[in-house]
Design a protein around this nucleic acid. Structure first.
Lengths: 150, 150
DNA sequence: ATTTTTGCAAATCATTTGCATATAT
DNA sequence: ATATATGCAAATGATTTGCAAAAAT
């Protein structure tokens, strides 16, 4: 579970206004522990009889992303999901079952980027690494998860 | 420039029918050297007065993807693009200017996946790594590309 | 002959935009 | 007061689906 203040502080620091919609959406985001889609937030806003409209949710998500307090994940399905993240930034392991994510440290990425750059002659400005699988909790739910005994 | 036969052979081997639409789309894909979107292909089909419809293009792209002869890229913009790829599979450097891509070898990824798995307790089933930047040719077009002299 | 594929139009889902109103500063 | 943000409805774009006709085996 994240911290809505982290988001609100970032908003404020960047000179954006603190509105009800933004506070509410920050709260919704903070109270999930997994990734979420814009559609999820729109549904939550609708069911919570808040008067917040679809367009505002999209605009707010874009804004949060531009402040680096959330980050977009491209799920294997092609869906766009988002996760709250510390400014530090970059790369997640994603649980395909419950959607929980965990940030991962550089762990050798920098070296790898350098190597690829040297090998291909590309100047590399940006990169994205995502890993998908099952988190410990979900693993525990499924005994013998891969090569099951028939 | 790719090889349409690579695609057609894979189709055949998997027991799919060789139709005009598939041959034509395989040809369109082979003659690009960068990535392409479904919309690109639809436009090419339309302008080439082929009678191929939008739905067929989508279905064909899905089919090719399922055969691992093309692979989906998630561009930083959020667009879905595709690249032709050898079955070997996995990970590309993408030129943000011309769209050219180059496949990259494991280059230490396997180790990194193992490390992350150990650190987080996740079982990792799948991963994706994409790097974005400028290819050598596009670099040559823009002298002093990063910190330009004002 | 039979099964798979196609094309089309319509349906669905995701995302953006215009604009008048409301709100934070 | 003033600039920014919102809500709504409508526009746009991406993708899917139903179904009868066409093509591949």
């Amino acid at each position: 579970m994240g911290d809505p203040d982290h988001i609100l502080t970032a908003l404020d620091r960047a000179g954006h206004r603190l509105t009800d919609a933004r506070r509410l959406i920050a709260g919704l985001i903070a109270e999930r522990n997994g990734h979420f889609t814009v559609a999820d937030l729109v549904a939550a806003c609708r069911s919570g009889h808040t008067g917040i409209g679809r367009a505002t949710v999209f605009r707010t998500v874009d804004l949060f992303e531009s402040l680096d307090v959330i980050e977009r994940l491209d799920l294997p399905s092609g869906e766009h999901a988002y996760v709250e993240c510390e400014r530090a930034h970059h790369h997640h392991v994603v649980c395909s079952r419950c959607g929980r994510t965990e940030g991962i440290e550089d762990a050798g990425l920098r070296t790898l980027v350098g190597k690829v750059s040297r090998q291909t002659g590309f100047r590399i400005d940006d990169h994205r690494l995502e890993m998908f699988g099952l988190c410990p909790a979900c693993l525990a739910l499924q005994p013998v998860p891969s090569s099951a005994t028939a």
